[in-house]
Design a protein around this nucleic acid. Structure first.
Lengths: 267, 267
DNA sequence: TTAAGCTGTATTATGTGTAATACAAATTGC
DNA sequence: GCAATTTGTATTACACATAATACAGCTTAA
């Protein structure tokens, strides 16, 4: 059950783009399991590249086990046992559900230092310009597959309440509250970005893969910033789930997140 | 005042890798605003590529406005006017804030048809296998810049309550409720994906660019699926903002989205 | 069986990304 | 002013991805 076979991505620029595009369409369901892909000739027309280039992309997909090619028959999608159900983040805990369910996740500390806060951190947290912050980068994995790359910035004074070793075992969240920080507000901003070499290596994905990007600013009851999180998540391993309910009447009708509910979607 | 710096990726494989690496280091603060980067010669040694390749990466960074190059002086980081992302989605309306604020957004209908529902749609909406659905693809723009690519699936029976022309002018949301649909639940799943050829063309980005991916399943009071939305958003034009508040005590302490309601928790 | 369509394989050009090198122009510090 | 360092520009050469084409082998359906 070699889930995430090593990604042997094509060297060429166009071939890699075709590969990434097809892989993406497979992983998010636009091409479903068992479905027959368009022929190589057809694909070369759609992507505007030669058939040789398409073949290089398909070679990589076949090497990853995502497709099965049969001469004369065609190329079919084969994602059986390949795709994990993604880890979902629980809005109530701001932690991956696996973590709160006590399932095995491991965190690896990639870097750890105290340094002056970057501008975007100090401005977001409301810190003095040259405030010292603890900068830590961690990678979280489940089943030996990394799914998140987290860089946290915490004011040095607060960060002294826990050790470097704590970071590798306990979510930063609990460390802060354990240290007496009274957390009040958070603001999350979700976007997307491409995987650079270092992050790609840490998350075991191809350079240029799409990643979910999450920025989180956490403040305490006094309005002081206590944590800045820059997180990158593998889209095939992680999703942000948001159950919502329609409430109110007339013009006041609006959406509200349904927090407590265990809204089960297709497993 | 967004420069609307389109992400111009270098064509070459190594050049793009250097570009992505440097962009990462800039965006997460390892290279801060105003800081002088290592020289091109030094960078070529660090990355193990030729100086020409480094220069191509720097060209792309300069075109994006992330760096400023001065002959004799060096290359400095310039992230000053870079971090503004104009359009944000409001969680209470599930619409971009620009839309509800009445600002100028235009919607263009790319395709419109009635067809059998794809498997992932029928299973998500709870429809019979061969149910007919209306499939519409729209692109929304502001200031002549497209920011979202939306594909909606609506059961044919419900879709007959509005016209093809309505789709180009009115959010699907209001069309459904206007047609008597009693919307109750929604479930959103946010992830990231790569731009394929068609979407890239529609959103005016490079093929292989990172896009924010949003899947939304809307159901009525009877639990019947009434809308399936597959949305793709340009990360440089759109982000999902989520203000949160920490509520509860002890083990029941958790996060709640601070939407619409103004600190009425009673605590 | 036959025909059509697909993958597998091979060939030859051609375009282009990359490396290596050299030198000019601009800036800074001595 | 002079020297050192940096970016800007140009050259040549090479490796390789890409395009275009052709044909063989396999599978499916009529």
């Amino acid at each position: 059950m070699n889930k995430h076979a090593k990604s042997v991505l094509p060297e060429g620029a166009k071939a890699r783009q075709v590969y990434l595009s097809l892989r993406d369409q497979i992983s998010d369901g636009r091409f479903q399991d068992g479905q027959t892909l368009p022929g190589e000739q057809k694909l070369s027309e759609v992507f505007g590249v030669s058939r040789v280039t398409v073949r290089r992309a398909l070679d990589a997909l076949a090497a990853s086990g995502l497709i099965i090619r049969r001469a004369g028959s065609g190329t079919t999608v084969s994602t059986a046992g390949q795709l994990d159900k993604p880890v979902a983040m629980n809005l109530a805990t701001l932690m991956p559900q696996l973590v709160e369910m006590g399932q095995s996740t491991t965190a690896r500390l990639l870097s750890f230092s105290y340094d002056a806060a970057p501008d975007f951190v100090s401005s977001a947290l409301g810190l003095p310009n040259d405030e010292q912050v603890q900068i830590a980068t961690r990678v979280r994995s489940t089943n030996h597959t990394p799914f998140s790359h987290l860089t946290t910035y915490v004011p040095a004074e607060i960060a002294r309440n826990y050790s470097e070793n704590d970071l590798a075992t306990t979510p930063l969240f609990k460390l802060l509250e354990r240290g007496g920080v009274q957390i009040k507000d958070a603001h999350q901003s979700v976007s997307a970005t491409l995987a650079g070499p270092e992050v790609a290596d840490a998350l075991e994905v191809a350079v240029g893969s799409a990643l979910l990007s999450l920025r989180r600013v956490v403040k305490d009851v006094d309005g002081n910033g206590v944590e800045y999180l820059a997180g990158l998540y593998r889209p095939d391993m992680f999703r942000l789930e948001m159950p919502l309910t329609r409430v109110g009447d007339g013009n006041a009708r609006h959406w509200e997140p349904a927090i407590g509910k265990t809204h089960e979607e297709g497993a």
